[in-house]
Every structure is written in C-alpha cells, then in structure tokens.
Nucleic acid binder design. Structure first.
Lengths: 329, 329
DNA sequence: CCGAGGCATGTTTACGTAAACATGCCTTGT
DNA sequence: ACAAGGCATGTTTACGTAAACATGCCTCGG
C-alpha cells in the first residue's frame, strides 16, 4: 500500500480510501491511485484488512460430507447469495455424523476466520454437541426443528406433505398410503406426521406406512408390497427417488400409473419430469432456503441478540402425469 | 492473548508457543497456559495469525454452481483432504459459465484469503479467461486437459472407456455402440475418442455414435433408436444416468438386458447397483482426485515453480449383471 | 569450582490495514 | 474583507500474533 501511495504521490490513507470506495476523494486523485494500483498489481491483504476491521466477510457452513442432494443445493444457494453480499463461504466438512466429529467441527470453528455460521444438520446431533459455538457469532440452522433455540430456516415440509395428500384426496381417492423416509430423519418425520394429520382432518384412519431409506432401491422394495394391495390407489412417497423405485415396482406388477395407482413424490429433482410417467411432486425451493440462511446470519450480525424462531419456505405442487382420479370414477 | 498470559503468569510469547504446539515449553507451564485459555475461553484470532504468518491455511475452490455430481464429489473429497491437512476450503461460486463470470471469480480471488486455488472447470473457459490468477499462488485444475499449462488432476477417462469397450469385446460382442455425452464436454469427448480408438485397435469400424446430454431422458430417447437395430448387442453409455434411460427404453421395446443387449455405464453412481438389472459400469475414484488436488497445491506451496503436467486417477470396472456374451454364444 | 553451552522463557518489533484525529485550503455569507 | 465551516488529504495509532533476538538459570565437563 505504501508503494502505491508513493507512486501516486498521495498518502497510504488515501489509497485505503480509494480501495474501499470511500467518498470524498477527488476524481483525479482516485484515478491516479487506481493507475498506481494497476501499475504495481496491488491487491489488498485480506488478513490485515480482517484484523483491522474485525470481520472476515466470510460465512462458515457446517454440513455432512455433501451427502444429500438437498444439502448440496442449499449450499449452492448459500454460496451464491453470500457472493452477492460480498461474502465468501468456507466449508466445514464433517466426515461422519458422529458426536465426536460434530464437536471437532465446532471447536475448529472457534478459531476459524468466519463471521457467522450456517448449520445444515439434523437437530439431534446439534443438541448433543458438547462444544459450544463461539459466543457472539450468529448461527442459522437449516434442515432442523430447533426453532426454540436457534434461528431456523427450512422448507415447509408439513405444508408440502399436506398439499400432496390433499391433491390425492381431492381427486377422489378413498385414502392415501405413505412411503416414508427413514425414522432418524426429521424431514421424514415431519412429512409422515403431516400425512397422518391431513388424513385425520378428513376423518380417515391412516393405513400403515411403509418405510424406506430415501433410496430408489428401498422404494422398489416397498412398491412390491404396495402393489399387492388392490385397495391401494394413491401413494405419497417421501421423496422422488423412492417414488422412482415405487413406479418401477408398480410397472413390473402390472399396476398402471396413474390409471390404477396415483403417485406423488417430494423434492422435484430434475429427473422426476422424465420418469415414466412424469412424476407429480412437491417442489422445494432450495435457492430460497439458502438465500434466507444468508439473510438471517447477516441480520444477526447487525442485531445483537437475534431471537430464535423458524422461517418456513413454502413448497409448490407440480402436477404431472402420475396422478389421476381413482379407477371407476 | 495478553489476558491469558497474565492469568497464567507467563509472557504472551509463551502463550503463542503453547497455542502453536511448540516444543520447548515445560509441561507445567503448558498446563497452566492451557488452563488459563480454557478459563478465559480464548480463541486465537485467525486474521492476526494469517497476517503474521503470511498464510491463511485456506484453499480456494472455483467451480460452477455445484452442478454435476462429479464436481460435488470432488469438492467433497477436497474439503475432507484439506481438513485433514489443517486447511479450510473457501468456495468461489461461478453462477453461470460465461466468460464474464469466470473473470469475475478470478479477480475476486485476487483479494481473497486463500493460499492456493483448485479449479474444477472445463478448459475452454479457463483458456479464455482474461484475468490472470494472482502470481505466485499455486493452482491445480481438475476435470480439464490443460496439462501443458497447469498442474492437472483428472480421472483416467480414456482408460475407463477403453476398459468398458474391451470388457464388451472380450465377452464376444462383434462391436460396441456408444451413447455419447454432449459435444461441449471434454470428459464426453475423451470417452468417445477412447471408444473409437479401442474399436480401431481391434480392427473394427465404429458404428455411428448416438449423442445424449448426460440426462436419463436423453438416454431413453437414444435407447429407443438403438433398440430398433437388431445388430446392436452391446452399448457403452458415457454415464450411468443415460444408461438408466437406455435400460428403460430397451425394456420397453422388449430387448432384454443382458441376454440380448449388454450395457456398460460410466461413473458408478450409488443408484447404479439398484438398476434393473444392476449396471456394469466404470467406477471413478473422486475421493482420490480430490486428495491429489489438495496434495498438488500443497506441494506447489513448497516448491517455487511447479511444472505443468497431468496426473491421471485410474478407474475400475465394476462388473454387475447388465453385461453378458452376445446371443448365440 | 568455574566457564561453556543448552534450554525455558521474556522483550521487541513488524506484519498491512483503517479508524480517529489533525491540517490546511477553499468556499460562502455577512 | 474576514471568519466560519466544509472538504480533501495527511499523520498517528492500534488491531493480535509470531519471528527474531535477548536474558537468565541450570547442567555438565575439565
């Protein structure tokens, strides 16, 4: 910076002012400084800048090894939103979802160069973490239900599931079966609960749910069971991949979709439009989740103590060809 | 740090020594300092540390919006390897693969707090970038063929494709058809070239390739064409998703796999083991690619001028049930 | 028994930047 | 015409750390 100042014939402080886009610098002076910067290929030292300013302009994201598609797309949206706000994103990978690993990530975080943290993680692991987050830095949690203790942003899982079930009931189906996700997933739990509640609202007794593990293969296995039940005319699958396996099983068993059985998925993954038949599903707006996460931590940096609370991002039912009225209607 | 030193009854320098795991500190002194650190919940300031040390212990990764599965898994491996080496990973998202965006990312990089850069990007965009990378910081490129100008780490696309084709020829198939990826992808080009070369080596004239766009849907469309050709008994698909679509098309047209037609994919995505039938495919070792990227930049930080060159990560043929000898053998 | 040398620890300093304060010139109103 | 005030720019200082150098004690060999 000193060199630039010398070459431009000004003080280092003026260079700093130009470098930070400060007002109150003559146009001519600014030009001279910019020329000198270019000439010397000057780049501000971000470490010194961070030390002086007390902020890093960086957000930390803690998540499991970029495992699920949803997490990835959320991360992507976070990175994009953060970049727009002039923030970089630092990844804090947690190799395996064990308590030790989570604690490790949290303690590393303490000495990491981040101004705020976004956690994409199921709550029960957060809860059990023994290492506290560094005090005073804002935290937003995605994909969790810890709204009573943290600021939480999440897809409206319940609303989406309710829309899926209602869509099928409105078509005239006597009831809706559920191909649920794994028990240890909160998203799966919330979708299953909303399915049950929506049926109950309609005065129906929910049929026994069939459980998968999110994979297409598990959906296929579940589908083989459901295909045996002639009274099963409508299935709400907890994600699109299981729906894919379900479609295959139904097809193999000669149960045509949607003529004999209607299927609704969840997520709206790109491939779902190309399924056989194209899948009616619940679209999740990951981009919005990511944007709100960034917005949330930035707000937390301005306000001293953000109160806990949950922001839900609405879903949208995408109606394709896998749903129709039940046979005989 | 001063407070900790005071509480522990030592100098700030000793605190620094303990904090950095320096030898030459009495066990007792170390314990006292550690106690004081805990007591005061001291966390070293990474900005000051970076300023003093002249390094950030952070790697930058430039990639397109976490688009393809391969990029994501590479990024994941990079983050994990980097963490093991004590480095954090900062994401540099490039929203759209346009020249402006790439230039933007590169120039932002200049003032970013990273010690090295890993670029996951097709070469032609790198080439056209007008903004130079900051001089003196190591760069490793993945998923590219710019081995003459950069240090490059990549999956051995050609070797994998060759293995796929040879596997089918060895089973006795008269020739092997190719369901290629999009023209603007270097990975697709290299796989197609190796397919052609391997057939030529065997004295065969390659049948016309069918082109898809990586998606299952495009594989389905291509599969409908290939199903019409009774002389087509073996297909090498450039990725697993297109292979999935291909399998569906063949199934619909009554061409059984592997009895009538054998199919080999590329990537070994998790789902491919659950395809119908389970897919023989080429396994890519993304973890190794990521590890080598990190190793490469770290080596570049020690050596002054790393010479360009390409490191290829070998693939592995995973033989499942979608391949068999041709009918009548 | 004494000096050399090693080892644990303390003191000084610089890393590059930006906030806070200081300076001096020029405009403006009476 | 002159004081007041604004505005562009300069000077001083501190951010938290770790390298380099300094100090003092203790051990060990002749």
């Amino acid at each position: 910076m000193g060199d630039v100042a010398r070459l431009a014939g000004v003080s280092a402080q003026t260079v700093s002012r130009v470098s930070n886009g400060f007002a109150g610098v003559t146009e001519e002076t600014r030009r001279q400084v910019l020329d000198a910067m270019r000439e010397l290929d000057y780049r501000p030292n971000s470490a010194a800048r961070a030390l002086r300013r007390g902020e890093f302009r960086t957000l930390g994201v803690i998540t499991f090894s970029l495992s699920t598609l949803g997490n990835i797309r959320t991360l992507d949206a976070i990175a994009t939103s953060a970049a727009r706000e002039g923030y970089a994103v630092t990844l804090l990978p947690v190799a395996v979802p064990t308590q030790d690993e989570v604690n490790g990530a949290f303690s590393r975080l303490g000495e990491l160069a981040v101004d705020a943290v976004i956690v994409i993680m199921e709550t029960h692991l957060l809860d059990a973490a023994t290492v506290s987050l560094p005090p005073g830095i804002p935290v937003v949690v995605a994909d969790s239900d810890a709204g009573d203790r943290y600021t939480v942003v999440d897809t409206d899982q319940a609303g989406g599931a309710r829309d899926a079930v209602r869509h099928l009931l409105d078509l005239g189906h006597p009831t809706v079966w559920h191909l649920a996700g794994p028990e240890d997933s909160f998203a799966a739990q919330r979708r299953a609960n909303a399915w049950r509640a929506t049926l109950a609202e309609a005065g129906l007794v929910p049929p026994p749910p069939v459980r998968g593990d999110w994979s297409a293969e598990s959906g296929y296995r579940a589908g083989l069971l459901l295909a045996e039940r002639p009274d099963c005319t409508a299935v709400f699958a907890a994600n699109d991949q299981m729906a894919l396996g379900l479609l295959r099983a139904l097809h193999e068993r000669g149960r045509t979709v949607p003529d004999e059985v209607s299927v609704v998925g969840f997520d709206d993954i790109p491939e779902s439009a190309s399924f056989l038949p194209p899948l009616t599903t619940i679209h999740q707006d990951f981009a919005e989740v990511g944007r709100l996460c960034v917005e949330g931590v930035l707000a937390g940096m301005r306000r001293p103590t953000p109160e806990p609370g949950t922001t839900l991002v609405p879903t949208r039912l995408v109606s394709r060809r896998s749903t129709a009225p039940p046979p005989g209607r």
